[in-house]
Design a protein around this nucleic acid. Structure first.
Length: 754
RNA sequence: GGGCGCUUAGCUCAGUUGGCUAGAGCAAUCCGUUUACACCGGAUAGGUCGUAGGUUCAAGUCCUACAGCGCCCACCA
């Protein structure tokens, strides 16, 4: 068998991705090229260069990965592989998120199908089921991450609900509590009667709808008419608010009336408040402090009493037995009828109104006052330690100020820039963050209560249950974003063994946290800028006095071919693995990357997938051609100075390398990828190879050698540059090539201009 | 109510700080079955870069207004 027959044997045609991808990933793992420590030992990376670090946004264990995750993995892998090849010590930490509410309700649904209700199980039994489910999803997700070729360091895999992260959560809670930033209080919260839990402002979605606006008086002898879409809540009114500028009601301000309204006795005071719009309705607002956020604030302002008239099941709780226990909608009907009967109803009109919906459970949000835990974003506290320029250690700041400062001063750069404004706007409107949830799955709040002899409640906040009998832990769990907010440093060993309250500094002396934090870049979906990115900034700046990342790269949403959202309920959901099987992972990655600008939505395109699958085949065959035709190539026989034509070819390729490098360094890999594609196919394959064919078989030995030399050099550079984009095929070719020395392509050096 | 994005070839989209005859993929038309590849090659056609003004030696790129589509935030009880 001659050389070319051998090459034919190892380069079977056409290129079949399925045949090579798995073994290639195994090769990388065997060689530990994803582990930065081992890369230093093996001298694959230069420990003197500044490290490059990135933490994977942890996918929720609610289900398997979707196309958005595939895009995320592709972008991050490109960034990471590029830096690794440039010789930087490079860390990419993988992990998953327990996604408390989402996972809990998912498991509940699964149990329902088996005719098991949550209430049939004890808390322990239920959590066991959830853990079981989460574990199986994690396996699935891990498999998907590998299939996408993501070069993550599995030895550092993390889970937001594992032991280490639990320690981080408890520590964070304790520190924030000690600084007075976490408080417990009765406040109006977004209650989800369907999910039976509170949710944060950001977890609400608005649905457009119509509502009836009723205009009426509480009673015949009451001087002012009010308008509302929710008459049933009016049994909880304690005031009527009017605009101070409104002349119509000036004379009533400060007066108090006792009225009998729908069988309930109400004491209504007339107050003035700037927030009341004189143009709307009658210009007078019936204040229901317990069941409306705006009203709650008005009530706070005027020290009004409040009465809860709707309970956690969205049923009435009133002194009138005819209404008590009714659903809110039934109570509304009762009250409207009563108004009609009493001849108090003046007007009924239809208006546009948005309905607040929980984005997890779909339940209609009922504002309720409840005893909950909050993070106070407006309270001044002393930052004990800081490496943030402009905020020295010891300075008094609020969380809001910190969060604004680091972005406004450019310590954190957001790509694309336009999201800066959106971020500022969100922070400026930020209210206290309600962090307690009435569900089982998640980090239980590290607070313990005990009744003492005087039947007062003692409270203990800390990492461990206090000594002695009688301590009961707060049953609530934390908002899932509390633990994911710690993600950039909880994955890097924080808090470790140090005594957190005393020696924050000590922590930084330890391994990963010192080496890799702040992380270089956070790449994630633009849709979780508020949920997550802002929370990470909050946690990192306040707990470590450090930014969590230098750059935020935001990607848009991946939609289907028609531009619709991909979702299970629409039935157009795609498992990236199915596309990988059909087109090869490299093609899937390229199709998601090329032409997708940061922050913009993109569409799954079968045309693109097909095109890049063909491209993989092109690389395969062009490589085969080069190796077949250069088997007798001898470096020594290459003329020192290449003939002009080949000199130009090589120079052009080096120019491309410079341009591509610059694009990569500036996060324009969606351009770099296209340039590489175009160069490889339409310059290297179509022009250079075709030109070289003549010279290789010609009589001029020097020209022939120069052609062989140039083909190899250009192919070598292209395989390297294409590797971050198409890791599988480039590595597979490399492993079969004369280029292979003592290391995989994944840790070969990135081409630079000599 | 406030803010943001998009509008470029038949379709889906690039075009980096204003600078060469405006690009890619797919689709279309014609030719080619020469030993890397038919998951191929060569060629052709196709755009007054949403509209109207403006700045500039020069505008797809900057400014202003308008239109259509989409998104985010706030929210009127």
């Amino acid at each position: 068998m001659n050389q070319n027959e051998k090459i034919d044997k190892i380069f079977l045609k056409p290129y079949n991705p399925l045949q090579h991808e798995e073994e290639t990933y195994m090769l990388w793992e065997k060689e530990s090229v994803f582990n930065p420590d081992k890369c230093v030992v093996k001298k694959y990376s230069n420990s003197k260069e500044s490290p490059f670090s990135i933490i994977l946004p942890p996918p929720n264990v609610t289900g398997s990965l979707h196309m958005g995750s595939a895009l995320m993995l592709a972008i991050q892998d490109i960034l990471v592989r590029f830096q690794r090849m440039k010789g930087r010590k490079t860390l990419w930490v993988p992990g998953t998120d327990h996604a408390s509410i989402a996972t809990e309700s998912k498991v509940e649904k699964i149990l329902m199908k088996q005719k098991i209700r949550r209430t049939d199980l004890t808390k322990e039994q239920f959590l066991e089921k959830v853990d079981e489910f989460a574990e199986s999803q994690r396996k699935e997700i891990k498999d998907q991450i590998k299939k996408m070729g993501a070069s993550v360091d599995w030895s550092r895999e993390a889970f937001t609900l594992d032991k280490q992260r639990e320690e981080a959560v408890k520590t964070a809670f304790t520190i924030l509590y000690e600084r007075g930033l976490i408080k417990r209080g009765e406040q109006i919260v977004n209650w989800d009667p369907k999910g039976q839990t509170t949710i944060s402002d950001d977890e609400i979605e608005y649905q457009e709808g119509k509502a009836t606006l009723y205009t009426f008086k509480y009673a015949k002898d009451f001087p002012i008419s009010i308008a509302t879409t929710r008459p049933e809540t009016k049994v909880g009114d304690t005031a009527v608010a009017v605009n101070p500028e409104d002349k119509r009601y000036k004379e009533y301000i400060g007066k108090e009336y006792e009225v009998n309204f729908a069988g309930c006795t109400l004491k209504i005071r007339i107050v003035e408040d700037k927030n009341v719009d004189p143009e709307f309705g009658t210009g007078a607002l019936g204040v229901t402090p317990a069941h409306s956020k705006v009203d709650w604030e008005i009530a706070q302002e005027h020290a009004l009493p409040w009465y809860k008239v709707i309970n956690e099941y969205a049923k009435m709780e009133t002194s009138n037995p005819e209404i008590n226990g009714l659903k809110t909608t039934e109570a509304r009907e009762y009250i409207v009828n009563w108004l009609k009967k009493e001849n108090l109803l003046e007007k009924e009109e239809e208006i546009d109104q948005n309905i607040s919906i929980s984005y997890r459970s779909g339940g209609v949000i009922e504002p309720l006052p409840k005893l909950q835990w909050f993070i106070d974003v407006n309270k001044k506290f002393t930052l004990p330690l800081s490496s943030i320029p402009g905020v020295e250690a010891g300075k008094k700041v609020t969380l809001k100020e910190l969060m604004l400062h680091v972005v406004k001063e450019g310590h954190i750069k957001i790509i694309p820039e336009r999201f800066d404004k959106i971020y500022y706007n969100w922070i400026e409107n930020l209210h206290d963050w309600c962090i307690s949830r009435q569900i089982w799955y998640g980090h239980q709040i590290p607070v313990w209560y005990k009744e003492n002899k005087e039947s007062e409640t003692e409270v203990h906040i800390g990492i461990k249950k206090p000594e002695g009998a009688g301590w009961v832990q707060d049953p609530d769990t934390l908002d899932t974003w509390f633990s994911s907010g710690l993600w950039t440093f909880s994955t890097l060993g924080w808090p470790g063994n140090a005594d957190m309250s005393e020696k924050l500094k000590e922590v930084k002396k330890r391994g990963d946290l010192l080496e890799y934090h702040p992380t270089t870049v956070m790449e994630t979906g633009a849709d979780i800028l508020f949920f997550w990115v802002a929370r990470m900034i909050l946690m990192s700046t306040s707990l470590l006095g450090e930014i969590p990342f230098q750059t935020v790269y935001l990607h848009g949403m991946v939609r289907d071919e028609k531009g619709r959202k991909l979702s299970k309920s629409l039935g157009n959901n795609i498992d990236p693995r199915d596309l990988s099987k059909q087109y090869g992972t490299d093609a899937v990655r390229l199709s998601l990357i090329i032409g997708t600008r940061p922050g913009n939505d993109s569409r799954v395109s079968l045309d693109k997938l097909k095109a890049y699958k063909h491209f993989a085949n092109k690389i395969w065959n062009a490589s085969r051609f080069v190796f077949e035709n250069t088997t007798d190539y001898n470096e020594k026989s290459t003329p020192e100075k290449l003939p002009k034509k080949y000199e130009e070819y090589v120079k052009n390729c080096l120019d491309l390398a410079r341009e591509v490098t610059e694009d990569m360094e500036n996060y324009r890999f969606y351009l770099a990828g296209e340039k590489l594609y175009h160069y490889f196919w339409h310059t290297f394959a179509d022009i250079i190879i075709e030109e070289a064919k003549k010279d290789i078989n010609g009589n001029n030995v020097d020209l022939s050698n120069a052609a062989k030399h140039s083909l190899r050099e250009i192919l070598r550079m292209n395989l390297k540059m294409l590797h971050p984009f198409m890791p599988f095929i480039t590595e597979t070719v490399w492993q079969r090539s004369p280029f292979l020395l003592n290391r995989p392509l994944a840790v070969e050096s990135w081409p630079t201009k000599k």
